[in-house]
């Protein structure tokens, strides 16, 4: 049986994320009540797992790290068809950078036990570093392929995948167990079904904290993070705008004239 672990992240809803701003005076983040949602590209990772399960004998475990409300995105993945959900949640995990996040997730994967494929979205909509997948692989001492946009050969011990790159792709041969981070091009994620939501009610989410993972405090969260945010600045450099007014035709004509005068069209 193919054992799949899908790592997902609860991110501020991208449609409302612009409401999170830096207070220019206190230099802290002003968090309005932006809801947490399942990171968009993690839906592609989840869809890849579900398609593999439809074709092969597979078991899907979903894993996330975050505050207790992040449990909702794990629940969403269970409703999509995952078999089991884990949420790594602890005050001590707070303030983690990409490395501490990857380290903690990797410890969670080790504790879950056997795994053949770890799937992650290529990037999160909030940090979008693309670091977590490769760094999970490093901690687990297994190979990784990032930006996977097509599974060419799969099912056996060696897989072949296309990894997206500038104006083309790399054809990569990789031996399981491996981490794959997936791009949006890989598939079209399915939407939640009512029966899925009903079935998910019976599935459980296991919550693990620092004690269950048996980790020292200095290895996780802010303490386990090599990088820190040392300062926040609101931006000041701006251009002086000229708003062009009039009817729609007048505005268009004036704009064309101004751009022609500037010699740019």
């Amino acid at each position: 049986m193919l054992k799949i672990v899908v790592c997902v992240k609860a991110v501020p809803d991208p449609k409302e994320a612009h409401k999170i701003k830096i207070d220019p005076v206190t230099k802290t983040l002003m968090r309005s009540d932006v809801p947490l949602v399942l990171n968009l590209m993690d839906k592609n990772a989840m869809e890849a797992a579900l398609q593999l399960k439809e074709q092969l004998d597979a078991h899907i475990t979903v894993l996330s790290m975050g505050p207790p409300p992040a449990g909702n995105v794990v629940k969403e993945c269970l409703a999509l068809g995952a078999d089991h959900g884990y949420l790594l949640t602890d005050q001590a995990f707070g303030g983690a950078d990409a490395y501490a996040t990857a380290y903690t997730l990797a410890q969670g994967i080790e504790k879950i036990g056997e795994y053949d494929v770890v799937l992650c979205g290529m990037a999160s909509s909030d940090g979008s570093t693309e670091w977590v997948g490769p760094q999970i692989a490093t901690v687990l001492k297994i190979p990784v392929v990032t930006r996977v946009k097509e599974l060419v050969e799969y099912g056996g011990q060696w897989w072949q995948v296309k990894a997206g790159m500038e104006n083309g792709y790399r054809l990569v041969r990789v031996k399981l167990p491996a981490v794959l981070t997936v791009s949006r091009e890989l598939n079209t994620p399915r939407t939640l079904s009512f029966s899925g939501i009903i079935k998910a009610r019976k599935k459980e989410i296991t919550a693990w904290g620092i004690n269950q993972l048996g980790l020292p405090e200095e290895s996780v969260g802010q303490k386990g993070s090599p990088t820190i945010v040392s300062d926040l600045d609101s931006l000041t450099s701006r251009r002086t705008v000229e708003i062009i007014s009039g009817t729609r035709e007048e505005k268009a004509e004036q704009l064309v004239n101004k751009l022609a005068d500037a010699g740019v069209i």
């Binding site: 990409a98 490395y99 990857a102 940090g127 570093t129 693309e130 670091w131 490093t138 990032t146 090599p226």
Partner: peptide, 23 residues
């Protein structure tokens, strides 16, 4: 931060257990 660099950088950083910033 090319596609190769974006994969290689976190592998090196994790291998050296050091910090990495993006963008």
């Amino acid at each position: 931060s090319t596609s190769a660099g974006t994969e290689l950088a976190p592998l090196i950083a994790a291998g050296l257990e050091t910090g990495l910033t993006a963008h």
